[in-house]
């Protein structure tokens, strides 16, 4: 879907996208990194279960909600990547963590 223009001078970080390690430019957002990794759907709609993916890339549409470093419902297009960041698909509605065993 997307490719990068060569930019050898840009510093890089290593992130885990959908369980696999990727080396990406340090200025990438979690959403652009997921698009570059060819992730396709980045979440499922909590209403219908349909696959969804980043749409506006400017923080307006909330389609890019993902699980980032185990925190669900983050707007991936507004999160800059960091070394060691884990970026995961969001399965639907955010689960509430009440701290108990059934959380």
């Amino acid at each position: 879907m997307f490719r990068k223009l060569p930019d050898p001078a840009a510093p890089t970080v290593t992130v885990t996208i959908d369980g696999r390690a990727h080396t990406v430019a340090a200025h990438e957002t979690a959403a652009s990194a997921a698009l570059l990794a060819g992730m396709g759907a980045t979440r499922r709609s909590p209403v219908t279960g349909e696959p969804r993916a980043p749409f506006c890339m400017m923080g307006v549409c909330y389609e890019c909600l993902m699980v980032i470093d185990d925190v669900p419902s983050r707007q991936a297009c507004l999160v800059t990547v960091a070394d060691g960041m884990r970026i995961d698909r969001q399965p639907g509605a955010r689960a509430l963590d009440f701290g108990g065993e059934d959380a």
Binding site: H27, S32, G40, P51, P54, F55, C56
Partner: peptide, 25 residues
Amino acid sequence: WTLPGVMTVGAGQILLKSSGMMPSG
């Protein structure tokens, strides 16, 4: 328009500006 792979033109241009990303395919 909710299918993955459908975006706005603005989103595509933001990816070009902020990440040097070009559409392929």
